[in-house]
Write a protein that binds this DNA or RNA. Structure first.
Lengths: 171, 171
DNA sequence: AAGTGATAATCAGTAATACTGATTATCAGT
DNA sequence: ACTGATAATCAGTATTACTGATTATCACTT
């Protein structure tokens, strides 16, 4: 292929094809990374009305599902580093959506709880997240959407053990 | 669920289930992000012997496929920002894998070429990348692997237009 | 009861990434 | 010559995920 900058507008030069790289569109690594960026972009700002970002939503979801658990356990559930958890919980506590309480049996740990405000927020967040994902995935058939989730889930769970060992209490 | 820190080792407490969040394992956003991180991790260091990282591999692939194109065009092919391209090409030029030459008709642009060393490197990189992905995907059936690529490709191409307009020459 | 090694939360600092905005040189069209 | 757009570059920002160290506490040994 020869340089052909000045003869045509780029958009017209490659109609359907868009000029993307064929080779990389067959690399799962490339595709995963770009798809992840795009959906992150789709989420961006959508949770702002609730005073949270995607990272906060993940924590609230886990707390809703599991009840009161420690910071370390939340991290394990959502593959988030212990040091990153501190900041996320600081945010959420400041917003009044969670509380760090004394752990009943282990004074090193914090027992993290959803406040009633937090419970309300996570309900709304579920709704917003569903809307965002629905729109993002609408270029796929219902079957493809389901298949994508199943396959990704398999991948993520299989590679669970590749998370840094120190973060899973196996040091 | 009640706090139950001290009665069991975490590993034994939840055998198959691993304590992951059911709710988030149904969120495509969460799954895409974590899967992308894991495969990135799988790539990490594997291209070092060739003196490059994944981001360099992407650029070399495009150049191999499209021949000499401008920096901006490379970026469009692989969804990389113009400012990020500068650094990546600096690296590659330093390693002697690409050359920035004068563009034959547009003196603002650079015509970027693979050197013979670069051509050799990208061939080896293809091989390494295939190995990395094969291992990463081996928890999936051949059908699932193919399906995953097709679905992700559909997603990425559909959301091509959500790339920052300024990066696609539509400002 | 004291001692040892592991663990939970925290903090400070690092490295990588993707970006914004400004600058310079050049181009295309008036 | 003048205007607005574009290509490459640079400086600086925000975010993310992490490393390593610290403090308090726990579980277990002796």
């Amino acid at each position: 292929m020869i340089l052909r900058k000045l003869d045509k507008k780029p958009e017209e030069a490659r109609e359907g094809e868009l000029g993307l790289s064929e080779c990389l569109l067959d690399r799962t690594g490339f595709l995963l990374k770009k798809a992840a960026l795009r959906i992150q972009e789709a989420y961006e700002g959508r949770l702002d009305p609730l005073g949270m970002a995607a990272k906060h939503y993940g924590v609230l979801s886990v707390l809703e599902e599991k009840g009161s658990i420690t910071q370390h356990e939340i991290g394990r559930c959502i593959y988030v580093d212990r040091t990153t958890m501190v900041g996320i919980l600081d945010d959420l506590e400041k917003k009044g959506l969670v509380e760090r309480k004394e752990h009943p049996t282990d004074r090193r740990s914090h027992a993290v709880y959803l406040t009633s405000k937090g419970k309300e927020a996570v309900g709304k967040a579920h709704h917003l997240a569903s809307t965002v994902e629905k729109r993002f995935l609408e270029c796929l058939s219902a079957r493809e959407q389901k298949e994508l989730r199943q396959i990704l889930r398999k991948l993520v769970v299989s590679h669970y053990s590749s998370t840094k060992a120190s973060e899973r209490g196996e040091g």
